[in-house]
């Protein structure tokens, strides 16, 4: 079936299998930041934003995504400059092997848009669906807290 997908503001006209998942179609379109990992809704590596909300592309039918705005990490860097969330992750060593980072970054982006000053508990709750096998999560949580503080939120108390 033919489908129009709006990815990062660009409309793609694609031929898909009606039973195909969004993950497969995005990767075929060249959005390789969208990771294939567990393929069964368990790891969060395939997270993308649909209308600003984080969802798992491995278990979202591509046909369902038509008519919605899809965002991947490719949309974040502007003119070669990393997004502040990405910068902060680099500063704290939150990206080690880096495989899970696109998913982490997008979930964090959605969180900060919904709640610009999340507490550590709220950050951990929002990110509990993004698994990382390198960091133990501490450096990633610190990256988000640092960013919130840089923006003037949350006191050091």
């Amino acid at each position: 079936m033919k489908l129009e997908l709006n990815v990062n503001g660009k409309v793609h006209s694609v031929d898909i299998n009606p039973g195909e998942m969004l993950l497969d179609v995005l990767r075929r379109l060249g959005y390789k930041s969208v990771r294939r990992s567990c393929d069964n809704a368990s790891c969060g590596n395939c997270t993308v934003l649909v209308d600003g909300k984080p969802i798992l592309s491995c278990t979202t039918f591509a046909a369902r995504a038509a008519g919605h705005k899809i965002e991947t990490v490719e949309s974040l860097a502007e003119e070669g400059n990393l997004h502040p969330i990405q910068e902060s992750l680099l500063e704290t060593g939150g990206a080690q092997c880096g495989f899970c980072i696109p998913g982490f970054t997008l979930t964090t982006k959605a969180l900060l848009e919904e709640n610009p000053e999340p507490t550590e508990e709220e950050i951990r709750e929002a990110l509990n669906g993004n698994l990382c096998r390198c960091t133990g999560y501490e450096s990633q949580i610190r990256a988000i807290l640092n960013l919130v503080k840089k923006r003037g939120g949350l006191s050091d108390d």
Partner: peptide, 11 residues
């Protein structure tokens, strides 16, 4: 809030 993850609850 204890059901699955934020991503899954959005789906």
């Amino acid at each position: 809030s204890k059901v699955a993850s934020w991503q899954l609850r959005n789906m």
